[in-house]
Amino acid sequence: MNYTLEIIVKVPMKDFILKFDNPDNMKHWQRGLISTEHLSGNPGEYGAKMKLIYQMGKREMELIETVTHRKLPHEFHGTYDAKGIQSIQENFFEETPEGHTKWISKSEFIPLSFTMRLMTVLMPSAFKKQSLLYMKDFKNFAEKGVSVSHA
């Protein structure tokens, strides 16, 4: 399952990247994030691994992020491995003529279990909706300083 989302964040690209590239800020725009733990490599650099734990409704979900490409301020890509599914995220950043930042996110979800295969077939909009929510929450955080950490 593949999709692409775009959003305009009304901050200069330099400010966008400073907020986006700081793991301490993740709690402010990734709903349900409980904790992060650096596992290996130089944090945020190519090959680095980080464990992310989320509360999704009544269950906890653990992801392992691996940075697969980093060419900031224009590109940041990673894979996210969880039980039954792998996500490949490619993020592209462009400066708009108004001096804002256009964030283009390309997502691919690869189901690794029967249950996840069913979810990607029967509920593809749920994945897209969650991705868009994170992007909108980042926009609110970057533009207005609004945090979802207590939401």
Rank of each mutant, 00 (worst) to 15 (best):
W29P: 03
I64A: 06
K49G: 03
E75G: 04
K102Y: 00
L112A: 11
N91D: 09
F92W: 06
Q55F: 02
M13R: 13
L39F: 03
I53T: 14
P97C: 05
M1L: 08
F141I: 00
V9L: 00
G32Q: 06
I53F: 03
K51E: 13
T120D: 12
N140F: 01
H100L: 04
N42T: 14
N140Q: 03
L39Y: 05
E45H: 15
R59L: 12
E75N: 07
L118Q: 09
E143C: 08
S105L: 10
I17V: 07
I110Y: 11
V148E: 00
T4I: 05
I7N: 01
R70K: 01
Y46P: 02
T101I: 08
T120Q: 10
T68G: 07
N2M: 13
W29H: 02
L72I: 02
F141Q: 00
F141Y: 04
F127G: 03
H69D: 10
D15G: 01
F20D: 05
T79N: 11
P124F: 11
L122I: 15
L39P: 06
K102N: 02
K19Y: 00
A151G: 13
K51I: 07
S87I: 12
T101M: 08
I64E: 10
Y3C: 08
K71Q: 11
L122T: 15
M116K: 13
D21V: 07
N140D: 06
T120R: 06
K136R: 12
E143Q: 07
F20Y: 13
L18V: 09
Q55D: 08
Q86P: 06
K51P: 14
L5A: 12
F138G: 06
K51T: 06
F92K: 03
K19W: 00
A48C: 10
S87Q: 14
K139C: 05
Y46H: 09
L132F: 15
D81G: 09
